[in-house]
């Protein structure tokens, strides 16, 4: 019976407006937080894995109290082991610190496999899965697009795809798969109301990264307007050679 730790990161809704105030993202201005989309693919793969082969799932997140939402959403899909990692004096954890804290929780959960997204939708670093594998001494397969309960994983490559199998312990990071995370139902939502979330802290080493500040993306330059049939060849040329959409 396999034990899978699924790592779920809470990120701003991908449609949320991000405001930078005094060099830092103003989290209080973010209206909606969601589970990072690649983590949702990993979660669905874990659900299908345990449904087919038996076993259980521990859902783990790292974040302040608002991150309980992603665990309750997981509980609505039947996950009963829910762990949130946080200490109130934590701020601006770097990748090594995040990986260390998550690896400790994975070990405590007794997980054979770790499933997570290939990268988060907010930081996009893509370092969490491989970093945890390094700490745990586990195998690591990244950017998996298809999986099965026999431990076989398909990952796209530049020239096609490759299928690999792996023995545990292993960390698997998922890219977009064919399987969107299933919707909960009311019965699951009612069960989630009673879900118990274990909150754990932990010691993390001093950060090696100094956070200097956030900034908004540069504003796009204004668009160009072309008028009249004489400009058609030029527009076609730009669409083909610059925009590369033709």
């Amino acid at each position: 019976m396999v034990e899978i730790a699924v790592l779920l990161k809470q990120v701003p809704d991908t449609n949320a407006k991000i405001v930078v105030v005094n060099g830092r993202v103003d989290e209080s201005a973010i209206a909606s937080w969601v589970t990072s989309p690649y983590d949702e693919y990993a979660f669905e793969a874990a659900l299908q894995h345990t449904e087919a082969a038996g076993g259980s799932i521990t859902a783990i997140t790292l974040g302040p109290a608002r991150a309980d939402k992603v665990l309750k959403d997981a509980a609505a899909l039947g996950v009963t082991k829910l762990v949130r990692i946080w200490q109130d004096d934590w701020q601006d954890l770097d990748s090594n610190q995040v990986q260390s804290a998550l690896a400790n929780a994975v070990t405590a959960a007794g997980a054979d496999l770790v499933y997570c997204g290939k990268q988060s939708a907010d930081r996009n670093q893509g370092s969490t899965g491989p970093g945890i594998a390094e700490i745990l001494g586990a195998a690591c397969i990244t950017e998996v697009s298809e999986s099965d309960s026999a431990g076989s994983y398909l990952r796209p490559t530049a020239s096609g795809s490759e299928r690999v199998t792996v023995s545990s312990p292993a960390v698997v990071t998922f890219t977009k798969t064919q399987n969107e995370l299933r919707r909960p139902n009311v019965r699951g939502i009612m069960m989630a109301k009673r879900a118990q979330i274990e909150v754990v802290g932990g010691d993390v080493s001093a950060s090696q990264v100094n956070f200097n500040g956030h900034s908004s993306p540069a504003q796009k330059p204004p668009g160009k307007t072309y008028e009249g049939s004489d400009s058609v060849p030029e527009v076609v040329g730009l669409l083909r050679d610059e925009a590369k959409v033709l």
Binding site: K72, A76, R183, N185, V186, I189, M190, K193
Partner: peptide
């Protein structure tokens, strides 16, 4: 409530 929000999101997403 949390439960009502989850129900809202479930139906809205569907």
């Amino acid at each position: 409530t949390d439960e009502e929000i989850m129900v809202r999101d479930m139906v809205r997403g569907w």
